[in-house]
């Protein structure tokens, strides 16, 4: 899923402070799972902002809404009738949801309430970690199912580098060395002979380097 984290409240206050009427718009997908922008977080943020502005003696009407998804026309249509009644919509969806909402409601300011961080998994309650950078050309078949592009600080395709120490990355003792994990896994699978095959130069044109990307599945397009 897409993992996000709430923006600092001071930053949010600064972006919404000139509004008279604000809609905080949550999303019921990834950001709900990572507890950054679901119905619960919409409620908490709305309360915090109401308290702040009340204390400042500032009149601001803050309403709450959470859609099934903000990255889908169908669900975004649900606020068609009300969108332009607000000075701004503070979207707690990922960057995709914020932009899709903005594209749909051109006359309303749409602001981000979270920082979109990475594609990751729930490691344990309250802890999400990165697993994928959407490079567009998956190498997991040759790396024991562990991704060096997203999990190695230098995205080394023929690792580990010389900074790997006791299973940890040179950047921090808190970060696992992806290549230690790869070697351990290849060893467990009896596939260390594959380790000595040199990974070729990667085609990054399917990554961010190639410009904005698109996936089209023609057989289902109308």
């Amino acid at each position: 899923m897409i993992v996000a984290s709430p923006k600092p409240i001071e930053e949010v206050i600064n972006t919404v402070k000139d509004c008279k009427k604000l809609l905080i718009l949550g999303c019921n997908e990834c950001v709900t799972v990572c507890e950054a922008g679901g119905k619960k977080e919409v409620g908490i943020l709305a309360s915090a902002l109401r308290m702040y502005f009340a204390k400042q003696g500032q009149q601001i009407l803050i309403e709450e809404r959470t859609l099934e998804r903000q990255c889908d026309h169908e669900y975004l249509e649900e606020i068609r009738d009300i969108a332009d009644t607000y000075d701004a919509i503070l979207s707690l969806a990922c960057g995709v949801g914020v932009q899709f909402t903005a594209e749909k409601y051109l006359s309303t300011v749409v602001l981000p309430g979270v920082n979109t961080c990475f594609l990751g998994a729930t490691e344990e309650r309250g802890l999400w970690t990165e697993r994928c950078q959407a490079c567009g050309s998956c190498v997991l078949a040759s790396t024991g199912g562990i991704c060096p592009v997203s999990r190695c600080a230098k995205r080394v395709l023929n690792g580990p580098c010389g900074g790997s120490t006791k299973g940890k990355c040179e950047i921090s003792k808190e970060v696992d060395c992806a290549w230690q994990l790869i070697v351990d896994r290849l060893t467990a699978l009896g596939k260390m002979d594959e380790y000595e095959q040199i990974a070729p130069l990667k085609d990054w044109s399917t990554d961010r380097a190639g410009g904005p990307r698109k996936v089209a599945k023609e057989d289902v397009q109308s």
Binding site: A153, K154, V156, L157, N158, G162, E170, I198, P200, L201
Partner: peptide, 28 residues
């Protein structure tokens, strides 16, 4: 070489490239 991570240096907020790794640079 691949080089030390930029977080050790004076531009810790900079981007790193790593288009190739050190082994692929040898090949190049």
């Amino acid at each position: 070489l691949s080089g030390d991570h930029q977080s050790f240096g004076d531009c810790a907020t900079g981007q790193n490239v790593h288009d190739l790794d050190s082994m692929q640079l040898v090949q190049t």
